[in-house]
Design a protein around this nucleic acid. Sequence first.
DNA 1: GCACAGGTAGATT
DNA 2: AATCTACCTGTG
Length: 290
Amino acid sequence: MAFTQWQTWPDGPKFNKRTLAEILDGGQTFRWNEKTDFFEGRWGGNVLRLRINKSSIEFAAPKEIESAQAVEALNHYLATESDFEALTDALPWRSDPILKTAIEAFPGLRILRQPLDETLFCFLCSSTKQIPQIKAICEAIADDLGETLADGSKALPSWRRIAEVGETRLRAAKLGYRAKYIHQTALFLADHPNYLEKIEASSTEDARDLLMQLPGVGRKIADCVLLFGAARLEAFPIDTWVQKILSRAYGLNDWKTGQLLEFAHAHFGTSAGLAQQYLFAAARAGIIAK
DNA sequence: GCACAGGTAGATT
DNA sequence: AATCTACCTGTG
C-alpha cells in the first residue's frame, strides 16, 4: 500500500503547478485528485503521484513498482517525445491576442496520451456533467467493477467487464441516461473484436467515423477521444465552453458547428486541439471572455 | 422550486 | 437540413 519516496523524473517536462493542475485535473482526464501537496492519479494499470519541487517534477510510485517502469509509463502518458513547446510556438498566437493570453497563462500545457478505452468511457460519462461529477461517477464505477491496483485502489473496468453487467448496475453509479449508451457501447464492442485497435490504426477521419458509430458518441465525444486518447492533435472538440469562446471572444456569433470546425482548422492548423485546450483552460479560469 | 451542466439521438417541422 | 426535446442526477 505504501509509496516510494519522491524521485526526480529524469528529463521530465517543465511546467509550473498551475499548468500541472490544468493538465491533470482540467478536463482531459477524470482520474487525478489533488492531495495536500501532490496529485495522485490512475490510468490503465498504473497509479502514481506527481508534484512540483523547485520547478522540476517528482514522482512516487507504489513500492511494488520499479522506478524505471513508472518513468516509462509517465513518458508515454505525458507524451514526452512530443515537443509541445514547438507545437505551441507554431500556433497563430502572433496574430491572435486571445490565444496569446491563454498560452501565457498556462505555459507548458500538454495534451495527454491516455488509454483509448478509458478515454472513451470517461467521455461517455461526461455529457452535461461538471468535472467533479464526472470524476465521482468514474470513481464509483471503478470501485464497483475495476481490477485492484498496486496501492489497493481500483482501475476503471474493461469494456468486456462492462458488457457483462447490466445497465442497472451502471445506473447505481449515478450515470443516469448515460448508462444506456455505455451499456450499448460495451455490447457493440463485444460484438466487434479489435474495434478500438482498428480506430487507433486508422486515419483521424476514419477513426472519427468509427467512433461515431458507437451508441452515445457524437462529434464532440469522438473528438475528445481522438484528442486525449489517440494523440490526434488536429481534433477540435466543440463543447459549450469552446462554442461560447468562439462566439464571444472571436465574434463568431450564430456560426454552425460545421462552420466553427472549418474556422478552427483554418485558423489554428494541425494542432487545433492543443489551441482548444489553451482556450478551454483560460476560459474556465476566467482569463478570457466566456 | 428551478435552471443549468465539457451531448446525443430521435422526432418534428 | 435545421430546429426542438427527452434523457438522469447533482448543484447553486
